[in-house]
């Protein structure tokens, strides 16, 4: 849905995230008395750890029910983001990552989605990498693997690419980039 972009009078803040400022020929929409000062910070290139994500090694993702209220930085559903007691060393299911484009923090599922090269089987890749097959979708070259034991997701992804058996290997992040339009 396209929201009508209206600028309306407020004392200090815009009223709604769906209400944005836009010069408009409709006079009733031009009643801007005050706008919050907007900082000018620019999107900059950030070194990512994989894809477009940077690992948040100082944050942990735990059930909100067991989190100390004072440690909670934010909550996501039934989960809480808290300061990690020690830096995260192994990137695995539940590790938090920050998207360098959206700046959103999301958790990893522990899966790697893979597009195999023609003629390559999931078992062949699994036996070479030690990754476990979560789903191998018949009729396609798509396989979902997960790390096992002490495997690190980023290292496993690099290992997958180095086998020469895959076209694409993508660590699954539980973030939805799309928005309603």
């Amino acid at each position: 849905m396209k929201f009508n972009k209206i600028a309306i009078a407020t004392t200090s803040l815009l009223l709604s995230t769906s209400v944005m400022v836009q010069a408009n020929s409709e006079r009733e929409l031009l009643k801007i008395t005050q706008q919050p000062a907007q900082k000018i910070t620019k999107h900059v290139a950030q070194k990512s750890d994989f894809g477009s994500y940077k690992v948040e090694r100082n944050l942990a993702y735990i059930s909100a029910s067991v989190a100390n209220a004072d440690d909670i930085i934010s909550t996501k559903g039934s989960m809480a983001i808290v300061q990690a007691s020690a830096p995260i060393e192994r990137v695995a299911k539940g590790t938090l990552v920050r998207n360098t484009l959206t700046n959103e923090v999301s958790a990893l599922s522990g899966n790697i989605s893979v597009l195999l090269k023609a003629g390559v089987s999931a078992d062949e890749v699994s036996s070479k990498t030690g990754l476990s097959v979560v789903s191998a979708y018949a009729g396609t070259q798509i396989v979902v693997f997960k790390v096992t034991g002490t495997q690190d997701l980023i290292e496993a992804s690099k290992q997958l690419k180095s086998t020469g058996l895959v076209k694409v290997a993508k660590i699954e992040v539980l973030e939805i980039l799309n928005k309603a339009q």
């Binding site: 996501k76 559903g77 989960m79 959103e104 999301s106 599922s109 522990g110 899966n111 979560v134 789903s135 979902v144 699954e172 539980l174 973030e175 939805i176 799309n178 928005k179 309603a180």
Partner: peptide
């Protein structure tokens, strides 16, 4: 689908 905190393989 839209929003956050979705299940794996969404």
């Amino acid at each position: 689908y839209l929003g956050s905190d979705k299940v794996p393989q969404t």
